[in-house]
């Protein structure tokens, strides 16, 4: 990465959010630049998922600001966000089980009708496994294929930034490699990615930059390589 970075596409500044009376995030900031792939790592319960939910407007941000391509999107509803170019893949329950694969993808494109065929083609070429099974119910898919479909659904609006919550969770090592490889391809085609991962080593080895989150606060940030080499990160999250 050169020093002259492209302008940020997604910027979350000083986010405070939580459930009920309790704040989980105490002023977290992350930035994704154009075409960048950024990892958020941190222990279980650090607030990584909460951060994604707050960015995507599923959880009220009590303080702070989220902007997409320079425009304020703090606490906007998801149907507006997807139109503006943000997509989100939750960690679990990220497909419609009783809908077919094709219907799942169509639902991903619900807010925009035009160009459906091209975008379907793109998803099917990214995930050839899904192509032959397009008429099958998503509930029948294996864990890895489900994850591919979830990614595919989120890609159906050609987002500028993709928020991914632990796409590798509970997948076999082979599947993990496959999914990361696909995310890499998606990113190489120009989509910014904000990737939450427990699988820190794997995530940092595919991402450009990374943030370490702990107890709802930014702990460390930097180039993915330097985090991989960082002693504290190594001790805490990489099991080194």
């Amino acid at each position: 990465m050169t020093d002259a970075k492209p302008a940020p596409v997604l910027e979350a500044k000083d986010i405070v959010a939580g459930y009920g009376e309790v704040d989980i995030l105490h002023g977290v900031s992350v930035t994704v630049h154009g075409g960048e792939m950024v990892a958020i790592i941190g222990p279980n319960g650090a607030g990584k998922s909460t951060l994604l939910r707050a960015i995507f407007g599923l959880l009220n941000a009590r303080r702070g600001q989220v902007s997409l391509k320079g425009q304020d999107i703090t606490n906007r509803a998801p149907d507006e966000l997807v139109l503006r170019g943000l997509s989100y893949v939750p960690q679990v329950d990220n497909v419609f089980p009783s809908l077919t694969i094709l219907e799942n993808l169509e639902m991903g494109a619900f807010v925009r009708e035009t160009g459906l065929a091209e975008r379907l083609d793109r998803v099917f070429s990214l995930f050839p496994d899904l192509t032959d099974r397009r008429g099958e119910k998503a509930g029948r898919l294996s864990g890895g294929q489900r994850q591919m479909l979830a990614l595919g659904r989120a890609l159906m609006l050609d987002p500028d930034v993709l928020l991914l919550d632990e796409p590798s969770a509970s997948l076999s090592p082979k599947m993990v490699d496959m999914i990361f490889d696909r995310i890499n391809v998606i990113n190489a085609e120009g989509t910014g990615v904000l990737l939450v991962e427990q699988n820190a080593r794997e995530a940092l080895s595919v991402c450009h930059r990374g943030y370490v989150l702990a107890t709802g606060e930014n702990r460390l940030e930097g180039a993915a390589k330097s985090l991989l080499d960082n002693e504290e990160v190594g001790k805490l999250y990489l099991g080194a």
């Binding site: 995507f56 599923l58 998801p78 149907d79 966000l81 997807v82 139109l83 989100y88 939750p90 329950d93 990220n94 497909v95 419609f96 089980p97 009783s98 809908l99 219907e103 169509e106 639902m107 991903g108 619900f110 807010v111 659904r153 609006l157």
Partner: peptide
């Protein structure tokens, strides 16, 4: 299809816009 999608998973329906 959107009705069935909502019946399946209302949160994901919302997330899909």
């Amino acid at each position: 299809k959107a009705m069935r999608a909502m019946a399946d998973n209302p949160d994901l329906a919302r997330i899909s816009g």
